[in-house]
Amino acid sequence: MSLLQISGVNKHFGAVQVLNGVDLTVEAGTVVGLVGDNGAGKSTLMKTITGIYAVDGGDVQFSGESLIGVAPGARRQRGIEMIYQDLALCKQQDVAANIFLGREPVKWAFGFLPGFVDKARMDEDALKMIARLGARIPSIHRPVGMFSGGQQQTVAIARALTFNPKLVIMDEPTAALAVREVESVLKLIRQMRDEGIAVILISHRLNDVFEVTDRIVVLRQGRIEADLQTRKTQMREVVSYIVGAH
C-alpha cells in the first residue's frame, strides 16, 4: 500500500480545467520531484492533497483512507504538511506562535483556569526544533517578519516537522535562498527521507531536483506527462517532457 495514492483527480476553476485525471503515488521514505511549467497545475495538485482545494472528481487516499471531505486541519493531524512558497508565516507573531499555529498546546493556569496557551512549553520545543535543524535565529521572541529569508524558511520547515509528519510537500523551498542555505535544505530533505518521511519537492531548479529525488514526475497542462526514475533519466529528457517536445 502506498502512503499517498491520487487517482483520476480533476479540478477546474470556472471554465479552466487545471487538473485532468491525475494519477500519482508516493511511497514512504521516498523523495518525489514534481516539475512542470508555470500553470501546469503543480500547486493546485498539492492543495488538493492538503485540503485547501476540494477535488471535482477522483480520489486522494492517504495510508489507505480517502481524504475526500477531510478538512485541512484534520489532514495535518494525519501527517500531511506543506511548506508554502510564500512560507505562509504570520509575520507579526513570534517563532513559537508560527511553529504551533493551529495546534497550540494548552494548560491550566494556577491549577484551575482552563485553556491557557502553554507558551513556555512552546518556546522550549521551538528552541529544540530550531537547534535540530542546525539553524541560527537571533531571538525566538522576535516577530518572524524581522528575520532573513533563510531564517523564515527555517521557521516554516520547523512548523512542518514538529508534529512528526508522514508526508511533507515543499513548494519551491530553495527559490529565495542563498547557496549555503540551499545546501542545508537539500541535506534536510535527505535526512527526512532517511527517517521514513515521504517528500514531494516542487522546484524549477532541476539541479536541486536531480540531487535529492528518487523519482521525477512531470506535470503538463494538468496531466502527468512522465513519471521517471531519477537515476535512469537526464536533465535533457526531463526538460523535453516539461516543454512537451518529447
Binding site: G73, A97, L101, E104
Partner: peptide, 18 residues
C-alpha cells in the same frame, strides 16, 4: 492566538486548519 493569526496572514491561518 488564532484571532491574531487570521489578522496577520489569513491564508496561512487557513492552511494550518484554523
Amino acid at each position: 492566538w488564532h484571532t491574531l493569526a487570521i489578522g496577520d496572514n489569513e491564508s496561512a491561518a487557513r492552511a494550518t486548519g484554523i
